[in-house]
Design a protein around this nucleic acid. Structure first.
Lengths: 350, 350
DNA sequence: TTTCCTTTTGAAACCGGTTTTAATGCTTCA
DNA sequence: TGAAGCATTAAAACCGGTTTCAAAAGGAAA
């Protein structure tokens, strides 16, 4: 691999000069610059980023941590979309992305790896648990950090969707279509997104003078599976005509459970969920859901982090909250042309 | 951040000695070793990996490239599972993972970034297109490489599922349940996995003395969407009682199309797909599919690459082909207790 | 032509490690 | 007691860049 010394020799200058040309330093005469640049181009020379990093202290590498609290979480398109948003911004800014998937089995180990890794300029942590030691560690070590999802610590930058307001909108919508016995299935209570969506649900009930009944609150963990089982649980112990469920994935499970119970959607139970991942629209029936701009959250987080790094201002935290949007589809309002399953053959006798 | 010099000073030795202790060099007296180690532990000193890399030429970073030929591809759990497998092996071996998602819009740009990036010791490329210039570039630059998915070049290591044999099994199964008018929807022909599954399908037909009819071959691209549209296309132009479709995601689309056409599964059309991603089993109806061990492909690829790097033997390519398995579910054989949709309410009149 | 100032360039120091080479100290043995 | 041999350690060179500092070159003014 060619080094700066060889380029210097070929161009007949010192390596300081080559370095200046590489870094667009103005203290180089035009004649020298063109001469050196010609050699660089001819040799297809690229400076060694490791050597560069050693002096500059910068690597142009960002870290992305995705805790797989439940390993199946990553199957959820949420993280794919997030990664896409982040990756694109990195590419456009000539950064590269280092990925850590935190499997529960190796949580401690991965966490240590991340903390001891000095290759990254900054890090994005997606939906970490409340009080996650990794976050504490990153803060102590002053690693520039942007969290996806809100956090308590006001010193940390974060990008989040307005979970509370989104949830209020969900309740309003259910009320507006005449539902008044509302139940909810929450996400994980270890995540702010899980808590906030429950808080918003309660706000919504209060706002509409509806009672908050504990037996109409079931606790899920964002997985399809938990959506299914918690819906069954709710159905078994209480009556309700509207369900606010904290993620689309869980809604898929809920719909299964509701159909298996022989109930109609939305006539018997209307459902509003949260996320609006791509399959939400394709699903039968298509989900009414609170859309959060997942991919955009990723790109904004990356852009924020890069801005902080490039302006050398990692001290002042930036906290960004993105608005959500109610997407009305057929789990709350049956469209005129809707035909959930109506063309699907019902099984003849076994 | 503490450096080796400070440790040396504190321990009252030269930095060479500290370096020896760090690298478990035997030429250090026990007395000195304990003394130095004590200081290291006390200070919580970790050597700077960038500086280390500069001399060692190793970074302990692996690259992972996921071309998003269709941007929606990454929504497919295939890549999530693959990434999981790779990530776990990296963590266990103290490697870190650098991720590139190749968006079609920035393909050239990303490709250049990857090629000019000298931070990685080796790279794993997942389902690259046939003749992908990135691969050529990596080979020319002698970057240690493992491909997920087969390739023509015998010099490159690869990990692949046995697409051809798996497809033959699919046909055998369809024939075994009495189907003899078989159609197929292929994956992308730019991918070996797409081609091989078609090849296997044809082998299967020949083996069973069934004709190969061009109008029963439709060309998809692995997306749910293409599964839907290509199934409609097939239904419109030919009759068939068995469908071999090259991915689970496409099968989801195909099922939609078949139900919309008012046909029964598996009575009118039986379906075998490929992959066995997690939703395949949960789907209604659950998919009969050829299982490929996706996560394991990822971990084997990573382990192979790491082995090659650590044994300094990146010259001899290793080509690994993993066996597939037929998972029989309800898109080919209705179970006794099956109840596809039978409990789901059919829409009353609008 | 000389002087002074501004550009431009090269030499040297540095980033934080590893590795080679040379020096030191300690044993061992004649 | 002195020389040889070995284990241990320090000094120095190196990895491939950037940056500081000083020197050289060039140009303008006197």
């Amino acid at each position: 691999m060619t080094t700066i010394n060889e380029i210097a020799k070929l161009a007949g200058v010192s390596r300081s000069t080559v370095s200046r040309v590489l870094n667009h330093d103005k203290n180089v005469s035009d004649r020298t610059r063109t001469k050196v640049q010609a050699v660089i181009d001819e040799q297809g020379y690229q400076p060694n980023p490791v050597a560069r990093s050693l002096t500059s202290g910068r690597t142009r590498v960002l870290g992305l941590v995705i805790p797989m609290v439940v390993s199946s979480l990553f199957r959820d398109p949420f993280f794919s979309l997030l990664a896409q948003g982040i990756s694109t911004v990195c590419t456009l800014n000539n950064y590269t992305l280092m990925l850590w998937l935190m499997e529960p089995n190796y949580e401690k180990r991965t966490s240590d790896n991340i903390l001891n890794n000095r290759l990254i300029d900054g890090i994005i942590v997606a939906s970490s648990k409340i009080g996650d030691p990794l976050i504490e560690g990153l803060i102590t070590r002053k690693v520039p950090l942007v969290q996806i999802g809100r956090n308590d610590c006001p010193d940390v930058s974060s990008v989040d969707a307005d979970n509370i307001h989104g949830s209020v909108m969900a309740v309003r919508h259910l009320v507006s279509i005449g539902k008044n016995q509302l139940a909810t299935i929450t996400g994980q209570m270890e995540l702010y997104s899980g808590r906030d969506r429950l808080t918003g649900f309660k706000h919504g009930l209060q706002e509409n003078n509806l009672p908050i009944c504990d037996e109409r609150i079931a606790f899920g963990n964002f997985t399809e599976e938990s959506g299914y089982t918690q819906t069954k649980l709710l159905l078994s112990k209480t009556a309700f005509d509207g369900l606010y469920i904290a993620s689309d994935m869980m809604a898929f499970g809920a719909i299964r459970a509701i159909y298996e119970a022989g109930l109609r959607i939305p006539e018997d139970i209307a459902i509003v969920s949260f996320d609006d991942i791509p399959p939400a629209e394709r699903h039968q029936p298509p989900l009414t859901t609170i859309r959060q701009p997942i991919r955009r959250m990723g790109s904004i987080a990356a852009q924020t982090l890069i801005d902080q790094l490039e302006t050398d201002d990692t001290a002042t935290p930036r906290r960004i909250i993105l608005q959500t949007e109610l997407k009305i589809r057929e789990t709350t309002i049956r469209s005129e042309f809707s035909n959930h399953y109506s063309q699907m053959p019902v099984r003849s006798t076994p």
